[in-house]
Design a protein around this nucleic acid. Sequence first.
RNA 1: GUGGACGUAGCUCAGCUGGUAGAGCCCCGGAUUGUGAUUCCGGCCGUCGUGGGUUCGAGCCCCAUCGUCCACCCCA
Length: 423
Amino acid sequence: MSENIEPLRGMNDVLPAEAHWWNRLESVAREVFSTYGYREIRVPLLERTQLFKRAIGEHTDIVEKEMFSFEDRDGQSLSLRPEATASIVRAAISNGLLHNQKHRLFTIGPMFRGERPQKGRYRQFYQIDAEAFGYAGPEVDAELILLTARMWRLLGISRVHLEINSLGTAEARARYREVLREYFQARFDQLDADSQRRLQGNPLRILDSKNADMAALIAGAPSLADHLDEESRIHFERLKSLLDAADVPYTVNPRLVRGLDYYSRTVFEWVTDALGSQNAVCSGGRYDGLVTQLGGEATPAIGWAMGMERAVLLMQELGCEAPVETPDVYFVMAGDQALARGLQLAEQVRSAVPNLKIETDLSGGSFKAQFKRADKSGAQLAVVLGDDEVVRGEASVKPLRGGEQKAVSFDALAAHLEALIQG
RNA sequence: GUGGACGUAGCUCAGCUGGUAGAGCCCCGGAUUGUGAUUCCGGCCGUCGUGGGUUCGAGCCCCAUCGUCCACCCCA
């Protein structure tokens, strides 16, 4: 195979044989959003690089080395979006959606990050994304989580577990960050290389280290919970009681800190043990400061993003249901006359019975070959048209899953098929 | 960006210590006239990821490169 026809690294084609999983996931998501009053927003894939720098944080890995950035003709730096939140906040501000208004929004689409690909992690990846603006209380935090729990239920996804934490206000977190920095700085030589580096950038991330050798050191670190401001503590307690009341099990994970700068107070993550090391399937949190940070009026906000590749992998792994589209009726036609008449008949039936799914063979091959395809298509019925039928003005209707074949006049065909399929 | 494994027909893979490629599936045709399972017969399919090197000779050895997978970093 010629190499320049290969897809770019980390880019994937979703082929027809797999598309039904994606359709299932997306249609359940849309259905659930609709029942919770979330409305769709569609935003560009491309924004000024500056937007992501301001929103996500200048010194995060995402911004420093993982964005697809390039210059347009005027020399302005543009980037493919690495996540949806920044774009949605921008859209909300630039369209004036936040003036004394509340919004519950969702979007579904591709994001881009120049990471090294591995299972469930690609350079173009798809997310389902939900954001709520204008709600300060923990009730919306709970509702967003309940919404995801409902999606898992409807999709049949088990083996996911909810972890929650509170990061406090930006001020409380900044204070805690310093306490933590002092603690680890004093024990600098006990840190591994990665964590020594984290100490400079985001010391909270040290808590999330996978290195077992540092477990004791981390366990002895000052706790975020002890440095929460009073309001955030009350907010978090209330969230927990709302989740309890809704019977959604969760674990408080004090080491769940999130990588992005803009989070504050509630953060949460749905994790699974079924996908190897890419264990987060959906995660999000509150970002009360981001709207002002991007130049809008102070607006409380919270959102989450679900990785669609990972959700699809989970569905496949767990044997969830995802209906495959099959035709109801398959037209088998031999000879030029029959082909022409059959095409015409199929149109006639589609007009008369709009929701009937009809697939025509059109290969002009032998009956044997056409019947094989008819069988494989999963259709319930075959409509057979050869020279004899055309002359008689009848089609032979053959049930493919048991039953007798019989001749039906062209005029009666639509009604007959409808009765057999829907009756 | 770091470490490891791997790249052979459309798919899944085999190919012994180097001697100029195989199987199954799929697809196509046939086994009495225009009818889908199974079975049987036949057919199609590859510059062995790419480019160099070693060798009389490389799918098998060496180097580079691209890609995939797994883990780390980071993160959904």
